[in-house]
Write a protein that binds this DNA or RNA. Structure first.
Lengths: 208, 208
DNA sequence: CCTACCGATCGGTAGG
DNA sequence: CCTACCGATCGGTAGG
């Protein structure tokens, strides 16, 4: 309606733009996220959209940041009540599988898609994607380290190797869901995580 | 030079377009592969490029087919001399890691990138990508089945689950190379494959 | 295989 | 936050 909006209204508009950006980019990629399309979907002008960010790259970075907030809320935060070490590591992986299974981002894991799109293009977006993955890897390694220190995982555990394997399982799951639409993929992934971290629902130790 | 070329010359031109297309698409994606850019790099006109394929989608499909030929030559074919079953499965995985490590496609695994780019977009390209993955999965499962039948892997092996895990390791390796430029990633992946399939260089059985 | 062209859309700016 | 506009580029076609 009015061309000048209050700060609160502008913040709301900005948040609406970002939420839509994350949804579109998860399906079409951060490059397929065009200002014109976004403006049309939001019933705004292109310059109205762009005015909040300044450039397409700034919009991409803001969308990436918003997606990171969603991931933290979906995967990092639900486990804070779980005991540190192996129980929390298992909870983290369970939340990770659930995040992929529920397709929190309609086009699948936002970050894996962004990594593939930008890994060959130097720039701020690529750097931001890499930082998000570094932070997640550090989160996994922290809990793996605690589990080893507590004797819940063998002293001989290759900690970086374990983080590598867990990441691979999540990537294979995302792929099976998005490309193959395989409804059994999540169950398959849960079995694989359980084989690697021990299955609390089964008797026996944490390693097969 | 001459506007009309012989069939052999036209085939050579077509092959040159495809090789360039595969290289560009592995870095920029199949959608970032634009007719204009391709034409400029090849010193041709846009219509000269497009005339060989008819449409951008047909060019994308042809590039995907060419990439599939390269993958088969790099990963499927080198193992034909290895004994079927577990030895050949190990050789297949070794060739797979080597293909990723050597960056046969300059932008990383062509198919994983294409899968992420097209998994949310119905169409012929998406279907072709899915078929390529189905064929590769079937190739892995065939050799896993032989290894189980020969008693080289336990009778209780979850064969689909094993193929899922191996795929995940390859994806994690591709990601570590392309996004993180991690020079130790290939060694990490080889350890993980060996832990799963047994390491012929070490004493002991094939399962830890 | 070329030139010349089409309408559509891209990111972004000027000015209000 | 808008209208009106910019040059560049997109996939594709006509005609040769």
């Amino acid at each position: 309606m009015s061309p000048r909006k209050s700060v609160a209204e502008a913040m709301g508009t900005r948040a609406a733009i970002l939420d839509r950006s994350v949804a579109v980019a998860s399906k079409e990629g951060l490059e397929g996220l065009t200002i014109g399309r976004l403006a049309a979907e939001l019933g705004m002008s292109k310059s109205g959209v762009l005015g909040h960010f300044g450039s397409k790259e700034a919009l991409q970075l803001a969308a990436l940041g918003r997606a990171g907030e969603v991931f933290r809320a979906e995967v990092w935060e639900p486990v804070v009540a779980v005991a540190p070490g192996l129980p929390r590591l298992r909870a983290l992986c369970a939340a990770w599988v659930s995040y992929l299974e529920r397709q929190v981002f309609p086009g699948g894991c936002f970050f894996v898609a962004a990594a593939h799109e930008f890994d060959g293009r130097p720039g701020a977006v690529r750097d931001a994607v890499e930082s998000l993955f570094d932070a997640w890897r550090a989160r996994l390694l922290k809990e793996i380290g605690r589990a080893v220190a507590a004797g819940e995982l063998p002293e001989s555990t290759d900690q970086a190797g374990l983080a590598f394997e867990l990441t691979g399982l999540a990537m294979a799951l995302n792929h099976a869901i998005q490309l193959h639409r395989d409804p059994e993929a999540a169950a398959c992934a849960r079995r694989a995580f359980a084989a690697r971290l021990g299955d609390p629902a089964k008797a026996g130790g944490d390693h097969p």
